[in-house]
Design a protein around this nucleic acid. Structure first.
Lengths: 318, 318
DNA sequence: CTGAAAGCGCTTACAG
DNA sequence: CTGAAAGCGCTTACAG
């Protein structure tokens, strides 16, 4: 039995007679033997399972990130379980209890961090390695993020280069670290040329984008607006259309996140494409470093945000 | 130790002195004791885990179904692991080996059935209960589906009632059971009034919808088109716009699947809303019946497809 | 080079 | 009413 175990697990440290090895391998094939993962897990104190805590299963914007994480985890022979941190009272805690405290997982990817959330430190210090993905938990030393501030800067540079000086930003909720970093980068560049951008915050939804764009148009009639999120952008485009404002002649529109939808809206949307899949796979790699005993660390995915130019941005009207 | 186990698991069959029970409960709370799920799983030959095999993590159209499944599984104290059946060579088999044959799961939800797929029977007869969700595997006796044919009928009745007689259907790939049933229901009703609908099949993507709609317009200049899927619809709307055809004056457009996007397109899209969340939760319930020892069965979610009328459908032009 | 033994953390008949 | 024992299917020192 022990020889079988050694052969099946390919352990080179103990010599096995070639003939014995063959007999074992043949028998295993015939019997379709596969070691039981649960028994193995109990013995090895390892489950081969990672969990991903998502803010909401409702919003599929994150699906490219999820896919990146899944693909890499699968490659590295880990299985991924899904958990939801809806933001309600104790959703996150309950997930934590059932996954970490019951010993079901080897590592935890948290995609649902909200600035000011009090549970987060407890998770970071828990018995199971964890990593904050996309939305950082500042100071935790275990954040895997993208260059969101650079995305904001790229957006600003694009509209500034087109001559715009009356500029707005349709931002996301302030408790979300990602959209906040976009805002900071954008505002920094716009202010660098002596302008003050108009800012409106809204939920990351179509209806949020619609209402906030109406507000922005009424408040300051900008000639260029950077929208923090693709869902908002769909609503913003509709608001602009309903207001009778022409894109890009009267208003340039630019959105964060690229998506197939961008190409098919009434005016194809210029967008900032982020390395979402890479973020997911990197986060798994960083988490597994910890699982294998390494120290936690912050990692920023190096791939730069990419401006995908389409028809919705053009020269500033004079 | 055994008394502790009995108290923690709330087994009423063995009497425990109230004082002992209290001592146990108090100690458990103080120590933050939680039974280890892996050890429990080994002993009980039960994992508390279900797997969901999705066709592609790329397409998030299914996210409402996934959410429904997740929510119900979680409620019933099961955890959900994700697996991908990309349709490539042995993706599904590999997932099956790692999840079922290694004993990681108690039940399997298969959302990736394709008509004619040869692995499916093996899965259905495997050692672990399974259920086909949304896309049926005909004859398996374990399908949990929605009323897709009725959705097609509802769509047909709507455009017929508006007086349309020159009617098209932008269908999905024939190997997908769901879109096929939509097509059958739609065609049946249209033919019942003596018309022959024009049919074009396309992948369930924006670009697929765009190209197929162009084809449909060129082939027969229909006055009403039922689009089989929301992603296709986004492309179809763009194709109609690019062709200079006015909606709904010259062409009524109606799509399967409701989505926030429908409200914000240049013409708000009339859509058929399906009980996606309910499908997910029902599938979990049906699967757990089997896990608990019951027989497999086909279930169709009773909730009827609902026509959500918006601006994209109107009376037939004369 | 290979087999027998212990033990991972539980649950459940079975004694007492 | 409660405790001691066996066993779920593995892996890994340890004998031989």
């Amino acid at each position: 039995m022990s020889t079988v175990s050694r052969v099946i697990n390919g352990r080179a440290d103990v010599a096995v007679r070639p003939e014995t090895r063959q007999r074992i391998l043949t028998a295993a094939r015939e019997l379709q033997y596969r070691p039981n993962a649960i028994a193995r897990g109990l013995r090895l104190a390892t489950t081969g399972t990672l969990a991903l805590l998502v803010p909401s299963l409702r919003n599929p914007v994150n699906s490219a990130i999820v896919r990146g994480a899944f693909d890499r985890a699968w490659e590295r022979t880990f299985v991924l379980v899904l958990a939801e941190d809806s933001g309600e009272s104790d959703a996150a805690e309950e997930a934590y209890e059932r996954l970490v405290e019951e010993g079901r997982i080897d590592g935890l990817l948290i995609q649902s961090a909200r600035l000011g959330n009090t549970h987060l430190d407890a998770f970071a210090q828990g018995p199971v390695p964890c990593v904050f993905i996309d939305r950082a938990h500042p100071g935790s030393g275990r954040n895997v993020t993208m260059r969101d501030a650079d995305a904001g800067r790229t957006a600003a540079e694009h509209v500034l280069a087109l001559g715009h000086r009356s500029i707005g930003h349709l931002a996301g909720p302030p408790e979300l670290d990602t959209v906040s970093r976009r805002r900071v980068g954008f505002v920094e560049r716009v202010e660098a040329v002596g302008c003050t951008p108009a800012l409106v915050s809204a939920p990351l939804s179509e209806s949020g984008g619609y209402a906030a764009m109406q507000e922005l148009l009424a408040a300051c009639a900008p000639t260029a607006v950077y929208v923090a999120n693709i869902n908002q952008a769909v609503g913003a485009v509709a608001a602009v259309r309903d207001a009778g404002v022409r894109v890009p002649d009267e208003l340039s529109l630019l959105c964060h996140d690229d998506d197939p939808v961008c190409e098919y809206l009434d005016v194809p949307l210029t967008a900032i494409r982020m390395p979402l899949h890479e973020l997911g796979s990197t986060a798994v790699d960083v988490l597994l470093e910890q699982v294998e005993g390494g120290p936690a660390r912050d990692v920023e995915v190096r791939t730069a945000p990419e401006l995908v130019r389409r028809g919705s941005t053009g020269p500033a009207p004079r």
